[in-house]
């Protein structure tokens, strides 16, 4: 793959609105919300099992998972508005 100088080329996605890529991200958003919470909860549960600190990390993981889900919405909206 040929190396290019950063910034030598235009890096912005096409500004054509509802592109198939954007639609894909929109469809993907719902499932990512659920998965973020499950990942946080699961990670916290595993940490609790490992460190025997139940339920501290399960609760922390759940809060982080929910925060990650909200962040995902904000991130997708921010990227959509940037374009």
């Amino acid at each position: 793959m040929a190396k290019r100088e950063p910034g030598s080329d235009r890096d912005t996605p096409s500004a054509s609105g509802a592109t198939p890529g954007n639609l894909g991200i929109a469809f993907d958003l719902g499932i990512r919300l659920g998965i973020s919470v499950i990942l946080g909860l699961g990670g916290g549960f595993l940490l609790d099992g490992w460190l025997r600190t139940s339920p501290i990390f399960t609760l922390v993981g759940m809060v982080l998972g929910i925060a990650a889900a909200m962040y995902t919405i904000w991130d997708v909206a921010k990227n959509a508005m940037r374009r």
């Binding site: 993907d28 499932i31 998965i35 990942l39 982080l64 990650a68 995902t72």
Partner: peptide, 21 residues
């Protein structure tokens, strides 16, 4: 310390959502 795990979970959710869907 707060944003790193949130970003990490958000990135990993892409991997899981792609495979699980």
């Amino acid at each position: 310390p707060l944003m790193f795990p949130i970003h990490l979970i958000s990135e990993l959710s892409r991997l899981v959502s792609l495979s699980m869907r």
